[in-house]
Design a protein around this nucleic acid. Sequence first.
RNA 1: GCCGACGUAGCUCAUUCGGUUAGAGCGGUUCACUCAUAAUGAACAGGUAGUAGGUUCGAGUCCUAUCGUCGGCACCA
Length: 603
Amino acid sequence: MTATPQYIHVSVAWPYANGDLHVGHLAGAYLPADIFARYHRLKGNHVLMVSGSDSHGTPISVEADKRGIPARDLFEHYHQRFLLTQQKLGISYDLFTHTDTENHHKIAQDFFTRLLQGGALYTETQDLMYSELEKRFLPDRYVEGKCYICGYDKARGDQCDNCGNLLEATLLIEPRSRNNPADKLVIRTAEHYFLDLGKFTNELLAYVESKKDVWRANVTAFTRNFIADGLRGRPITRNIDWGIAVPLAGWDDKKLYVWFEAVMGYFTASVEWAHNIVDYHAWKKWWYNPEAKIYNFLGKDNIPFHTIIWQAELLGVDGIYNDGDSARINLPYDVPANEFMNIEGQKFSKSRNWAIWLPDIAERYQPDAIRYYVAATMPESKDSDFSWEGFYSRVNNELVAAWGNLANRMLTFAYKRFDGKVPAYDQLTPQDEAIIRQSEAAFDKVGTLLGEVRLLAGLQAAMDVVRDANAYLNEREPWKRIKDDPADAARSVYTILRVIDNLKILLAPWLPFSAQKLHEYLGYAGQIFGTLKIETFHEHTRSHNGLTYDGSKAVGRWQVSALAQGQALREPAPLFVKLDPEIIEKERAFLGAPRDEHEIVVG
RNA sequence: GCCGACGUAGCUCAUUCGGUUAGAGCGGUUCACUCAUAAUGAACAGGUAGUAGGUUCGAGUCCUAUCGUCGGCACCA
């Protein structure tokens, strides 16, 4: 139990700040990351969990144009909502920042420069379709025209839907914009920088193979496949206005491509955290420490960006900011990608509003209820489905009836019948000791599963203890013994309270809010976890808000209970709100209907 | 079209390298209990593991074919 603390970096995919967060974000990345991080915090490991809003990229510009506001205003609006939403749901980021900080710009540019100096970049002149009307280069998929292979009239710039061939947009006959068919397109040449991925093929391949027993099978298979197809250079600059400047003279009309710089956020946010919150060089303990482990949590759509591109970038900048130290920069130890969470059997769709928005449900349900259901139906190995009937029944049957009620029934009983104290006992029976040992053994079992990022199995293992504890009570029947053999009732009530105390910690990574309440009902002081707060950070020319986690006062430990006899309890109350069956239809009615953004109220 | 993944009880899902009568939760039926937000426990019912072949002493687990669902095929991140 007294192993040397490990350095665990939990990096979470960066959400585009062009709309509210939805349940897919939570299921895909934020919740698994938080459960994993909270477990390691309880273990006493040095956790650094970072993410932030992706403030660049076409989706931001497109949405901002649609609303007629500057891109910066749009992303700042959603960034602030991301902070509030995640604070409410208890996603315990050491730092949740964004990519429009001076820090991120500077480091991204330094990455670019270092890659350039290391020979990992090259320039190439591309012929691209340019819209005179929109005054910009159009992505291939926005171009339409006659297929030069089969003659199909509505071929897209990247592929013909009729003959299936991959196309060159510039060769299309009579090319036009899909946004506006009247818009005549012309071919313009532009010089761009490319990241030479092919240069890293062998290193990347060797790395996947070395991690094949750690990474999930789908992640390994996808990555191998991607490499086997042949890695081609990828353009990392673009003719756009909104983004990070290319740090070279004469490149003013271009910016760094968003996918190139956004993933660097894992690194830049670590540096920002160190600069703002602790000491300047602290980030190195995760990035240049051979013992540290970096875990990237993301959705499956993001796999190649993390197992190929980000890793190539890291390989290409190895040694950056390390002041000549020989340690190599750390690549992600694991990339636990989740699949997708569908909604009532259909795919998420922002345009159809087929989505469950986190700010909305956080208004109506307890954070632990949301966390429980999403964690219990997490798409860990395949797509899963969020259904309101499932939410209703799992919350009521499992969270409220099995677990919440176990705690409530015995806390109430002890509080009323044992003078508000943990009962004192003479000697425990073998049956009492057996259930205590069982709940203690779960620390290794659940802990191992959590360490392997097998969160579904971990939750199940913890809930198994809940069921065993309920069964134990039915046999021991303290409510009967209190009448004919009070000493025996004291034994079993003490026992069950100690089991509940263990379950409190076993379930805390999933259910941090109710764990804290339980902690207090059991008569303990202090907080199991640290505190999340929103702070403002000032740079030279701009300021930004970030979500931060202060764990300095946290007392929770991944350790078995040593519940003291006679400890004074506090008056208990039910941990969870039981759901009304009416919510099923009410919530379904929101799907596919127009939605208004509500102000997010915390507390 | 090419590549990949998946298809297991009414529902949601487990079955790490192929190995005893394929498991769990929910839902259903019966019984027990009353401390608890009418909350718990026990027992029972329920699956020829999409389909058809094959390899093997033995396959849900490997191979082939076929049907179905989904994803990727790089400038959408």
